[in-house]
Design a protein around this nucleic acid. Structure first.
Lengths: 218, 218
DNA sequence: CACTGCTCTGTGACAAGATCACCGACCGAC
DNA sequence: GTCGGTCGGTGATCTTGTCACAGAGCAGTG
């Protein structure tokens, strides 16, 4: 099976376009924690993630950080290419959250594909759309949602499959753009209620139903 | 002079492309306060703003609102087309903040231009880039910046030329995604310091230097 | 003019969240 | 074991958000 079949929007491309894409792209493997792009490190290629996830976050001068969105397998890093194309000074950075396998499409091939294929354009624009709605969501949550609800959502998002997360309180604070102490206190509160069990750098979810109820509330 | 010359990224287009663009687009006039796009109101065209400004904001189910960015003369509403192309259910809306004159480019012409012209692609992607960095900025400000600093910035942004703004406290709160009471108290504080003078629905800036100092601080 | 209804602003009490300072618990390396 | 570093806990304090309500200004109406 071709890697391209993992991308819903790409598998239906006409054969010549599809072949060009497969032929001109390189499969790259990136170890966990690699900085894929960031200030002063513009990506040369458009990445299509075949395996793994990339976490995109922003850091202020003051050293505070917030997670903007994640790129999962089957999605692409479109924002980065276009952004860096125009503004070099943008401060978001992308980090491989796991080991990552990706198809790297050189900029000129990307440009040719956008020019030649309606379907590829559709793919690119809908990828944009996805990211932008993610950003809208982040803005809405930060501005208006209570922190306990946001934390419950995040715990479920990050730990639903395994039932536990290997994360420090600081990392959770960064996810939500808040302070470590706030997260610590909220987690203690959740623990008192029997929804989670805490130990060093581990949060185990013990009552996902209750967390979900909170996450959905309001 | 052609309207197209107002757009830095478009005036250098090759003649045939340029002619296509001018010929196929329609000049539309939109009165102040018109909802240009929003939930359930997808735009059929890409708008290039020739005169006026469009305010793009987001409203939650709870009725709370925050301003995301503004599109000024010489810029385009790219996000809307692409977003709505993929996700119908997105909640941002665009309102004409003044009377607006714009060139409307039908979707199929837009698509053809993107296909045919490298320069037009460049224009589109850099317009995206601009909006996305705006969103990044909003996220950073909401998450980490003190409200007095943000208010000072906003007062200067909206009132620098005339030295006063015709705005209610509620509108300023919406600009910053906060509550009216917070703005009222901050403005009173600014007034006590002699930086502004308040009257019903009017804020007059009387010490922009001091406001700028605060806005730049940190 | 007086009356009415509306929008806009002011205020106090309180809750939630952020910040600061500091400490102790835990962990791995040596 | 001890040492240095990370991780988490805690109280005090400040900022911001929320709630409830009151009063001030303004327009329209008779």
């Amino acid at each position: 099976m071709d890697w391209i079949d993992r991308f819903a929007g790409l598998s239906k491309l006409p054969a010549p376009i599809r072949d060009l894409l497969v032929e001109k792209s390189m499969i790259v493997k990136v170890p966990k924690d690699t900085v894929i792009f960031g200030p002063g490190k513009a990506p040369e290629n458009l990445l299509l993630l075949i395996e793994g996830t990339v976490r995109v976050s922003q850091t202020t001068e003051g050293g505070r950080e917030i997670v903007l969105y994640r790129v999962h397998a089957g999605e692409s890093c479109v924002l980065t290419t276009a952004c860096l194309l125009a503004y070099e000074d943008y401060s978001a950075e992308g980090i491989a959250e796991t080991d990552v396998v990706a198809a790297a499409i050189p900029r000129d091939v990307f440009d040719k594909l956008v020019s030649d294929s309606t379907d590829f354009r559709q793919f690119v624009f809908s990828a944009y759309s996805r990211r932008i709605t993610d950003l809208f969501y982040v803005i809405e949550e930060i501005a208006f949602r209570r922190i306990d609800i946001r934390l419950a959502q995040k715990l479920l998002e990050l730990g639903r499959d395994t039932g536990s997360l290997h994360t420090t309180h600081q990392q959770l604070a960064t996810e939500l753009g808040t302070a470590r102490e706030v997260i610590s206190r909220q987690l203690q509160d959740f623990q008192r209620r029997g929804w989670v069990v805490l130990s060093r750098a581990v949060v185990t979810l013990t009552d996902t139903a209750a967390l979900e109820k909170l996450a959905r509330s309001e």
